[in-house]
Amino acid sequence: MSIQHFRVALIPFFAAFCLPVFAHPETLVKVKDAEDQLGARVGYIELDLNSGKILESFRPEERFPMMSTFKVLLCGAVLSRVDAGQEQLGRRIHYSQNDLVEYSPVTEKHLTDGMTVRELCSAAITMSDNTAANLLLTTIGGPKELTAFLHNMGDHVTRLDRWEPELNEAIPNDERDTTMPAAMATTLRKLLTGELLTLASRQQLIDWMEADKVAGPLLRSALPAGWFIADKSGAGERGSRGIIAALGPDGKPSRIVVIYTTGSQATMDERNRQIAEIGASLIKHW
């Protein structure tokens, strides 16, 4: 067993022997301040990774656009098919120029040779490549099948209805392509620590998230040296922004954090800054 596999296998073990965790309302004060600064709703939840206990939450059962955070769930569904012998990570998928959609920095470079399922998941999570996500959605049967996968996990809230990039439209009061912070946090925890996926697939999923290259201005910008984070960000229309993450000190994750916002007129930089400040408060009061 590799060191990384050992780390993920012992996530519940280490967490069980940690000192009790206590909620700190100071972080919620910052979440509410972010709402004021952005002029928009902000949803927040913080779960203990081992027990699933909610440590703090704000608007945990209000719907927010998922945006690209759905790509972690998508690759979880792909990995479940791999575990069941219905898919192979090494299978190569070929596609054409007509398949390319807006923001496809990886797939646009491989029109000639195609990409493997493993490479597509890596591109979808680490670079948020939209064509990679659409190609992977095709392998599982489309958005409705991802929703069905989530329902089978016990998540009857999260739903995907459309493809990239239309799913980022974020129309107010439109339930399409949305989740709730509580539902997303619980589902992410199941994917990373539950028995739904094999140990190898859980490790692969967290490795992809740990290698995320496009979430630097968010929670990662607030992390002290030595902290662990595996995350996936999302951005959408109407001032929408979000991030889902597993993080913790001492090089291992111990909490799940989900943050979503929508309806702001603020710039992307300002949305990023507010999420980073929430992260800084979380870490300060850990």
Rank of each mutant, 00 (worst) to 15 (best):
T158R: 00
A230W: 03
S122N: 15
P165K: 08
I125P: 00
G194N: 10
A123C: 08
S240F: 03
P65C: 04
A16S: 15
Q204S: 10
E56D: 12
E277T: 13
G248Y: 01
R81K: 13
T138V: 15
A15D: 02
R238C: 14
D48W: 03
Q265W: 10
G248K: 02
E108I: 11
L223C: 13
N134H: 04
D212I: 02
S68R: 00
R118E: 15
E26V: 10
Q37T: 12
L282E: 04
S264Q: 06
V8W: 08
G234T: 00
L219T: 03
K32A: 14
R91M: 06
P65A: 06
T27P: 06
P60G: 15
E56T: 11
L111Y: 09
S221Y: 10
N134T: 04
R255G: 02
S281R: 12
D174P: 02
E175L: 14
V101R: 08
S233T: 13
S254R: 12
I244A: 07
T126E: 11
L137V: 08
K53H: 13
L137Q: 05
A133L: 00
H5W: 05
V214P: 05
A200T: 12
W208C: 03
C18S: 11
R63F: 06
A200I: 10
S2K: 11
T116Y: 05
K32S: 12
P181V: 07
Q97G: 12
V157K: 15
I275S: 01
L89N: 04
A148V: 13
L73P: 09
H5S: 07
G90E: 15
N168H: 05
H24S: 12
V8M: 11
E175C: 12
F64V: 04
I45W: 01
K213W: 06
S51N: 10
F70T: 05
K144C: 12
L196S: 15
P217K: 15
R92G: 06
A200G: 14
D250Y: 12
T126D: 07
A266K: 13
P172N: 09
L219F: 09
F58L: 09
A15Q: 08
R91H: 10
A280M: 15
P165G: 06
A215L: 02
L197Q: 05
V78F: 04
P253V: 09
M67S: 09
V8K: 15
M127Y: 11
N98A: 15
G248R: 02
R162V: 02
L196G: 12
V8I: 13
Q88P: 05
N98M: 11
D250V: 10
H110C: 08
F58V: 09
Y95E: 01
F228S: 07
S254E: 13
A34T: 11
L218I: 05
A34Q: 09
E169T: 13
M180Y: 14
E277D: 11
A133R: 00
Q86D: 13
K232R: 06
D36R: 15
I275R: 00
E166Y: 15
L89T: 06
Q265G: 13
P65R: 02
E270M: 13
L38T: 09
T262W: 08
V29T: 11
V29G: 15
E145Y: 10
L79M: 11
F149N: 06
L49N: 04
L218F: 04
A215P: 05
D36C: 15
P12T: 12
P65F: 03
I259T: 03
T178Q: 03
G216E: 07
M67L: 09
I206R: 12
E175F: 12
R162Q: 08
N272S: 05
A23R: 04
L282C: 11
T112Y: 15
I11S: 07
Q4G: 08
Q88S: 13
P253C: 11
S96Q: 13
L218A: 04
V117M: 10
R159C: 06
N134L: 02
S233W: 02
L55Y: 11
M209W: 03
E26K: 13
P224D: 06
V257D: 00
K232G: 00
P65G: 03
K53V: 13
L137I: 10
G43T: 01
M66L: 12
I45C: 14
A15P: 07
A16H: 15
A200E: 14
A230H: 01
L282S: 06
H285S: 10
E35F: 02
P253H: 10
T139A: 15
N272E: 06
E169I: 10
M115I: 07
A215S: 09
G234V: 00
P12D: 07
A148P: 07
L205H: 01
L191I: 11
R176N: 08
K284L: 13
L197F: 06
R59E: 03
I171L: 15
K190S: 13
L55H: 08
T69H: 07
T138S: 15
S2G: 08
V82H: 09
P165H: 05
T186F: 15
T131P: 03
D33S: 14
D161M: 05
S128R: 00
M127D: 07
N98K: 14
P165Y: 05
G263M: 06
Q97I: 14
T186S: 14
V21E: 05
D113E: 14
K252Q: 14
I259P: 00
D231K: 04
L205K: 00
K109T: 12
L191F: 12
R7V: 09
A280R: 14
I140V: 09
I206A: 14
I3L: 12
L197H: 05
V101L: 08
T139Y: 07
K190A: 13
T131M: 05
P181A: 07
F58C: 05
A222D: 09
E62L: 07
C75W: 00
E210H: 10
G76T: 07
F17D: 03
K30H: 08
F70S: 08
A230D: 00
S281A: 15
I244M: 08
I229F: 04
N50F: 10
F228A: 09
L188V: 12
I93P: 02
L38H: 07
R238A: 09
T261N: 03
R238H: 14
G52I: 03
E119T: 06
T187L: 08
R81P: 00
T131E: 03
D250P: 09
L89M: 11
L135H: 04
T107Y: 01
A245T: 05
G39V: 10
A280S: 15
M209C: 06
D155H: 01
H151F: 09
Q97A: 13
F64L: 02
I206Q: 12
F6E: 06
G90L: 10
R41C: 07
L47P: 00
R255K: 12
A16R: 04
G194T: 15
A133D: 00
R202T: 14
V101S: 10
D48S: 08
T27E: 03
M268S: 07
A235L: 05
A211I: 07
I256M: 07
Q86W: 10
G248P: 00
E87M: 12
C18T: 12
P143H: 08
T107M: 05
